[in-house]
Design a protein around this nucleic acid. Structure first.
Lengths: 338, 338
DNA sequence: TTTAAAAGAACAAACGTTTGAGCTATTTTT
DNA sequence: AAAAATAGCTCAAACGTTTGTTCTTTTAAA
C-alpha cells in the first residue's frame, strides 16, 4: 500500500478519545467497559468515515488470537480434496475464522514446510489430510497444544481427532457386491499405499474376497491419480487372464481406468465391470454412470470443523475420532454374471 | 497453543547475543550486517535446537510485509475456478508468498466482506475474479496502491490489470463452427449476465449469427451452474421449434444441459449438437466427449501471478491487460447437417 | 605509533493493537 | 454530609519482530 492505512490512533485523534476507548468500542467490548452510547456512536461514525480496517496482525500479536486455521490436503487437483477444501473453507468462515489452504502435493517434505509457514502465521487450528504415515511433525504440534483434526487420512494409533469414512466397510461392501454379481476375477487398483484409507480399503477388499473363498486377486497401483489408474489398467489388460471387474479406490483412478478401457475398445460393463470409491458430480454424466462408494464429504467437513472449533475453544468432545458410513450408489457399471 | 512459542529473545539469551543479531541472521541479513560466520552458526544451531518458528505477525507489523496475497473467486464449486485457484495457489507459493483463498459465492456483499477481512490481514496483493459489475470497492483498494490483478472476469474501462481469455473470439469461433456445420437454429445458454466474459461471449455469438444472416436465436439463462443449464435446456425443449444446437457458455452449464437431454432421451449429437465453453478433465470421459472452447487456465494463472508479483515489487509491466486466445477442441458433440 | 576504516554487535524505538490497573466525576447508599 | 459504589474513560506496558543508529573492537593505512 502506498498510503498508510487508518489506525486506531487516527480515530482517537479525530474523536478526541483515547486509543483504548476506541479499541474497546470497535472490538465489541463497549458494554463490558461501560463506554457511553454517545461515545460509541462518535467512534463508530469516525471509523466509518475514515474507512478504518483493523490490523489483524497487530491485534493478534497482543491477543494471541489470529482467527485463522490451516487446511492442508495432499492435492487440490484431485476433485475429492478440492471439494472437501471448498466445503471446509466455507464452513470455517461461518465461525468467523479464515482458512489458509495448502497443497502438499503428496510430499511429506512440502507438508512440513507448509505447516511451518502456517504455524508462523499463528494459526489457531489445523485440519489436515496428511500425505503419508509420517506423523512426527504433526504429533509435535499436537503436543504443543495446537488443535488438530485429521480428515480422510489419519493415524489410527495416535489420539489426534479425526473424521473420515469407514473405508473398510465401504471397500467390503463394494467387493461383496461384485462377488454377489458373480465376479471372482477382481482386480483392485489402489492409491497411496501408506495412507490409512488405502490400507483399510485394501483390507476390506481382501477380507471380502477371503470370506468368499476367492484366493486369487490382484492389488496394484500406488497413487490416487488418473495417471496411475490408466497405467495400471493398461498393465492389467496385458495379462492372459483378464479380470471381469475392477475395483478402483478413488475417482481419479477410475477415470484413468475408463481411459485405458476405451483405448482397448472394452465396454463397461459388457466386457469389464467397474466399481469405484468416491462420488463426483460429473460421474453421473459419463457414458456409463459408475457404481460408487460415495463418501459423505459434507458431513465430514461439518464434523471436522465442529471438532476443530471445540478444540480451539478448549471444550473437547468426548469422542473425537469418527468414521462415517459411506453409501453405495448403484448405477450401471457392474454387470451381473449369474 | 498451550506452551509459549520460542522467540528471538529465547535464542538471544541462549546464545548470549543480542536480539538484533539473532534477527539479522535468521532473516538472512547476516552478510549485509557483517555477522561473523561463527555467530551465525551458533545462532542457527540454537534456533534449530529450540524449534524456533518465526512469528510472521510480529515481523509484518514492523516491516509491513505480510508475504500473503488473496485469491477471490465467485465459486469454488465450479471446477473451472477450483482448478484456477489451485494453480494460482501453487504458482504463488513459488514466489514464497502464501495465498488466502476466498469464495464470494457470486455475491458482491460477501465479496466485499471477504476483501475487508483480507485487507485487515495485510495482504500485499489481490487476484480476483470479481462476481459482478460493481467495482467501487475494488477500485478503491487499487487507488490505495494495492496491487490487483483480475482474472477471468474484469472491468474493461478501468486500468486494473487483468488476464483473461479472449471470450469474444472463443464464442465467435464456436458459433461459426456450428454454422459451418449447417446449424441455424442455435440456442445459447449464458451465465452471469453482468460479467464481462459472459457479455463478450454473447456478443461473439450474436455477431457470428448476424454475419451469417441468421436472425432468430435464443440467448437464455443467468448463472454459471449445472442447475441453470439444466432448467434452461428443459425450457428450450418445451418449445415447438427445437434448436439443432446448443452453445453452452460454461462447463457447468453443459453438464446441466446433458442431464436435461438425457431425461428426454435426446442423443448428442444425433438429435441435438452441443458445444461448450471451458474444458474439464472429465469432459473427455463423457458418453460423448464435448467439443469445447478450452481456456488456457495454466497460462492465465502464471501470467496473473507474474503481474501481481511485479506489482508488489513496484515494477509494473507496460502491458498488463491481456486476453489469451482460447483453443477449440473438436470432439464428437456437433453433428454435420450439410 | 597514530589515525582512519572496517568488522562485529548492541541499543532502543517503532509497528498497531489489547488489556489490567488506575483515575476522576457522578450517583447511590448510609 | 460522608462513604461507597458506579460510570466513563485513560495510562502505560506488552506482544515479537525489524531497523536506523551507535558503540566497541579489530585491522589497515599513513
Amino acid at each position: 500500500m502506498i498510503t498508510r492505512r487508518v489506525n486506531l490512533n487516527d480515530i482517537a485523534n479525530k474523536t478526541r478519545l483515547s486509543i483504548t476507548t476506541v479499541s474497546r468500542v470497535l472490538s465489541g467490548k463497549a458494554e463490558q467497559y461501560r463506554i457511553s452510547k454517545k461515545s460509541q456512536q462518535i467512534i463508530r461514525d469516525a471509523a466509518e468515515e475514515l474507512d478504518y480496517i483493523p490490523n489483524h496482525f497487530a491485534a493478534n500479536l497482543k491477543s494471541g488470537k489470529s482467527n485463522s486455521v490451516a487446511i492442508i490436503v495432499p492435492s487440490l487437483m484431485n476433485p475429492f480434496f478440492a471439494i472437501l477444501a471448498s466445503e471446509l473453507n466455507s464452513e470455517i468462515r461461518r465461525f468467523n475464522y479464515i482458512s489458509i489452504i495448502g497443497d502438499s502435493d503428496e510430499s511429506c517434505e512440502i507438508e512440513k514446510l507448509e505447516l511451518q509457514q502456517m504455524v508462523s502465521r499463528n494459526i489457531e487450528g489445523l485440519i489436515i489430510a496428511p500425505c503419508g504415515d509420517q506423523y512426527e511433525h504433526i504429533k509435535k504440534l499436537h503436543e504443543l497444544g495446537l488443535p488438530i483434526v485429521c480428515i480422510d487420512r489419519y493415524f489410527e494409533d495416535l489420539d489426534i481427532p479425526y473424521v473420515s469414512t469407514d473405508n473398510y466397510d465401504g471397500a467390503y461392501t463394494a467387493t461383496k457386491y461384485l462377488i454377489e454379481n458373480g465376479h471372482s476375477m477382481i482386480a483392485c487398483i489402489q492409491g497411496v499405499q501408506q495412507s490409512t484409507p488405502n490400507r483399510l480399503r485394501v483390507k476390506g477388499f481382501k477380507d471380502a474376497m477371503d470370506e468368499s473363498g476367492i484366493r486369487t486377486y490382484n492389488v496394484v497401483g500406488d497413487d490416487f491419480t488418473i495417471q496411475n489408474g490408466y497405467l495400471e489398467t493398461k498393465l492389467l489388460l496385458e495379462q492372459k487372464q483378464l479380470p471381469t471387474a475392477i475395483f478402483s479406490l478413488s475417482n481419479t483412478i477410475a477415470m484413468g481406468c475408463i481411459k485405458a478401457l476405451k483405448e482397448k475398445n472394452l465396454m463397461i460393463p459388457k466386457d469389464i465391470s467397474i466399481i469405484t470409491f468416491d462420488e463426483h458430480p460429473y460421474q453421473d454424466y459419463l457414458e456409463i454412470p459408475l457404481t460408487c462408494i460415495a463418501q459423505p464429504v459434507s458431513d465430514i467437513s461439518k464434523i471436522a470443523v465442529k471438532f476443530l472449533i471445540s478444540g480451539i475453544n478448549g471444550s473437547d468432545h468426548m469422542i473425537n475420532q469418527v468414521l462415517l458410513k459411506p453409501e453405495m450408489k448403484i448405477k450401471n457399471s457392474v454387470r451381473r454374471l449369474i
